[in-house]
Amino acid sequence: MIHRFALFAVPFLFLCLPMVAQAGSASAPLVDAAARGDLPQLQTLLVRGEAIEQRDGRGRTALLAATDGQHLALVRVLIAHGADVNAQDAQRDSAFLLAGARGYTDIVRATLAAGADLKLTNRYGGTALIPACERGHVDTVRLLLDTAIDVDHVNKLGWTALLEAVLLGEGGAAHLEIVRLLLAHGAQVNLADRDGVTPLQHARQRGFGAMAELLRAAGGR
């Protein structure tokens, strides 16, 4: 009985080998070059006609990989060759969203010029503005607020950009400036979280005196 199984198993294994090899040989050379920041290799691959929207195992395009490495020159080359700035990977990052969250202002500017979707959301349901505010990226926030992005967009956690700047910020100069910018661009000062707690109440609870005063002066309750 063992011998009969072996007779069937060996041919089956040989039949599977091509499939295993095929799965293991899947590659995305353009993405790899972009991730390394290898501009000459990237340009060579583009000239050869390598698919610009190819994806690696994480679902990243070359543009996303270049953004991840903050390789601005490669980002510009890829955009010039028609790379989709709104293509999202397995965890719903796009070049625009990732650059916003990281504070890569020059890349955000490049993706905006190439038609970045201001309504695109990340895995938390947030626009590019929300993590930029949370992480204190003042220049990126300033740039995004000069667009038509929704300043009061609410993510899956029930938080706006203003709430995240208060709740997840450090209360220092960067987040204070971001709160000022948000208010100057019409953010609703009393738009509360799911528990009904307003930005001013959160600022007071966290001991952010200057931020609390700024919110109070803008009509916060």
Rank of each mutant, 00 (worst) to 15 (best):
124 Y>E: 11
83 A>H: 06
134 E>P: 00
207 G>L: 10
170 E>Q: 10
187 A>Y: 05
5 F>L: 15
100 G>H: 13
34 A>F: 01
38 D>T: 03
172 G>C: 02
190 N>H: 12
101 A>C: 08
148 A>I: 11
10 V>T: 14
84 D>W: 05
135 R>T: 02
53 E>I: 08
204 R>K: 08
33 A>D: 01
84 D>E: 04
149 I>G: 10
14 F>H: 04
149 I>M: 13
197 V>T: 14
5 F>E: 09
128 A>I: 11
214 L>T: 15
170 E>N: 10
174 A>I: 02
60 R>T: 09
118 L>V: 13
37 G>Q: 05
80 A>I: 04
7 L>F: 07
123 R>M: 13
52 I>K: 07
11 P>H: 00
144 L>S: 05
200 L>V: 13
168 L>A: 13
75 V>S: 01
132 A>M: 05
35 A>H: 04
33 A>H: 01
216 R>F: 14
124 Y>S: 10
163 L>E: 02
175 H>L: 07
187 A>C: 07
76 R>G: 04
167 L>N: 11
200 L>C: 14
193 D>A: 03
154 V>G: 12
156 K>H: 12
31 V>Y: 02
104 Y>C: 07
200 L>D: 02
88 Q>S: 15
67 T>K: 01
138 V>W: 10
22 Q>R: 08
3 H>M: 12
99 A>F: 14
32 D>H: 07
8 F>G: 10
184 A>C: 03
206 R>E: 12
21 A>T: 08
96 F>Y: 15
88 Q>N: 15
57 G>D: 09
142 R>K: 11
24 G>F: 09
128 A>D: 12
188 Q>S: 08
191 L>H: 13
201 Q>M: 15
146 D>L: 10
108 V>N: 08
210 A>V: 08
171 G>V: 09
74 L>V: 03
18 P>N: 01
97 L>I: 15
199 P>Q: 00
204 R>D: 11
48 R>W: 03
39 L>E: 13
194 R>M: 06
168 L>T: 07
209 G>C: 04
162 L>N: 00
196 G>E: 04
161 A>P: 08
113 A>S: 15
172 G>E: 10
189 V>I: 02
63 L>M: 07
93 D>C: 14
201 Q>V: 12
79 I>N: 02
111 T>I: 13
188 Q>H: 13
28 A>V: 09
89 D>W: 14
208 F>N: 03
184 A>D: 14
56 D>P: 06
37 G>C: 04
55 R>T: 04
125 G>Q: 11
186 G>Q: 00
29 P>W: 07
133 C>P: 06
66 A>Q: 01
217 A>Q: 15
86 N>Y: 14
30 L>M: 05
38 D>L: 00
11 P>Y: 00
36 R>K: 14
59 G>L: 03
189 V>L: 03
